[in-house]
C-alpha cells in the first residue's frame, strides 16, 4: 500500500516538473518568436499543456477528493477557454492591422468591406 502511495508521489512530482518545463518553454517562446500570431502559438498550446500538467499532478497527489475534482474542473475549463482567448487576441490584432512578420509566406485573409 505504502509502495503505491510513494509511486504516485514520485509520478505526481514528475508530472509537475514536466508541466513547469512546458510553462517555461511557453514563456521562452513568447519572448523569442517574431510576431503576435507566432507568439500566440507558444502561449496557447505549450502553456496550456503546462497548466494541465500541474493540474494532473494535483490529481495524482490527492486522488479524487474535493480538491482533486476541482483540479480536473479547472483543467477542463483551461482546455475550453485558452483557444477562445487566443482566437480573440489574434482576431483583434488582425482587425487593427497588425502585420505578419517578414518571414511569412502566405496571407489569404480578407476583412469584410475592405478592398486592397
Amino acid at each position: 500500500m505504502s509502495f503505491i502511495i510513494s509511486a504516485l508521489n514520485v509520478l505526481s512530482t514528475a508530472v509537475l516538473v514536466i508541466g513547469l518545463i512546458f510553462v517555461f518553454l511557453g514563456m521562452l517562446g513568447l519572448l523569442r518568436l517574431p510576431d503576435v500570431y507566432n507568439r500566440l502559438h507558444a502561449t496557447t498550446k505549450v502553456a496550456t499543456l503546462g497548466a494541465f500538467g500541474v493540474m494532473a499532478s494535483i490529481v495524482l497527489n490527492v486522488g479524487f477528493t474535493p480538491i482533486g475534482i476541482k483540479a480536473i474542473t479547472v483543467g477542463l475549463f483551461l482546455l475550453l477557454t485558452a483557444p477562445i482567448a487566443s482566437h480573440m487576441i489574434g482576431r483583434a490584432a488582425r482587425r487593427h492591422g497588425v502585420e505578419l512578420c517578414a518571414e511569412s509566406v502566405i496571407d489569404e485573409y480578407i476583412i469584410a468591406g475592405e478592398t486592397d
Binding site: 512546458f22 518553454l25 521562452l28 517562446g29 523569442r32 518568436l33 517574431p34 510576431d35 500570431y37 507566432n38 502559438h41 507558444a42 498550446k45 505549450v46 496550456t48 499543456l49 503546462g50 494541465f52 482546455l79 488582425r94 505578419l100 512578420c101 518571414e103 511569412s104 509566406v105 502566405i106 496571407d107 489569404e108 485573409y109 480578407i110
Partner: peptide
C-alpha cells in the same frame, strides 16, 4: 484525442522555441 494532439503540438512548438535559430514560414490560410 484532443489531449494527445495538444501534447504533440506542444512538443513541436517547443522544438522550434529551443532551436538556436528560429526558422519558420508562417502564414494565414483560408
Amino acid at each position: 484525442v484532443l489531449i494527445m494532439e495538444i501534447t504533440k503540438a506542444s512538443i513541436m512548438v517547443s522544438k522550434i522555441v529551443i532551436s538556436p535559430k528560429i526558422d519558420i514560414k508562417p502564414g494565414i490560410i483560408a
